[in-house]
Computed example of a mutant assay.
Amino acid sequence: MQTFVKKSLVLAALAAIAPLSFAQASTSSVQLYGIVDVAFRHTNNEGPAADQSKSQMIGGGMSQSRWGINVTEDLGGGMKALVNLENRFTADDGTAVNPYFQQSWVALQSNSFGRITLGRQYNVLFDVVTSTYASFPYSPYMEAYKPEIGMSLGARASNMIKYTAEFGALRGSVQYSFDENNTVSTAGTSVSAGGAVKTAGGYLRYATGPFAAGGGYQRTTLPGGTKLDAWTLGGSYKSGPIYLNAGYGENKRKDAYVLGLAGVVDSGLLAAYWSGSSNGGFVPGAAANPAAPATMANLLNHADKRQMYKLGFGYQITPQMNAGLHYYHARQSGSASGAFNGKANFLVGVVDYAFSKRTDAYAGVDHTRVSGGAGMALDANGARSRTGFTVGLRHRF
Rank of each mutant, 00 (worst) to 15 (best):
G60F: 03
A380G: 09
G76Y: 02
F4Q: 13
V184H: 04
S112W: 10
K305M: 13
S53V: 08
S371Q: 09
N279F: 10
L20D: 14
Y145E: 13
V184Y: 00
V197C: 09
S135T: 13
S21G: 14
A303D: 01
A157L: 11
Q24D: 14
F101N: 04
G225W: 04
A155G: 13
M1P: 12
N182E: 15
V351P: 02
G150W: 04
Q175H: 08
S26C: 12
Y315V: 09
F211G: 07
R156G: 07
F389D: 08
G263K: 04
G240H: 06
G209K: 02
V97Y: 08
A144E: 00
M151H: 01
G234I: 10
D93K: 05
A374Y: 06
S185M: 03
S53R: 09
F178K: 07
S55P: 05
A196F: 12
N298Q: 03
L14T: 12
K6E: 14
R386L: 08
S53G: 11
N341L: 03
A361Q: 04
K357D: 10
Y328E: 12
Y138S: 11
F355K: 06
N322F: 11
F340N: 00
I35L: 03
A81E: 05
S29D: 10
A107T: 01
S239R: 11
A15L: 14
T27N: 13
R219L: 14
A155H: 11
L125H: 01
N45A: 01
A383T: 15
A286S: 11
F355H: 05
G382W: 03
A165L: 05
N322E: 15
N98K: 12
A50T: 10
A256E: 14
M1V: 15
P99C: 00
A50R: 07
V351N: 09
G276H: 03
G314K: 05
M79K: 12
T220I: 12
T132F: 01
G114T: 05
G60R: 02
I116K: 01
Y100E: 13
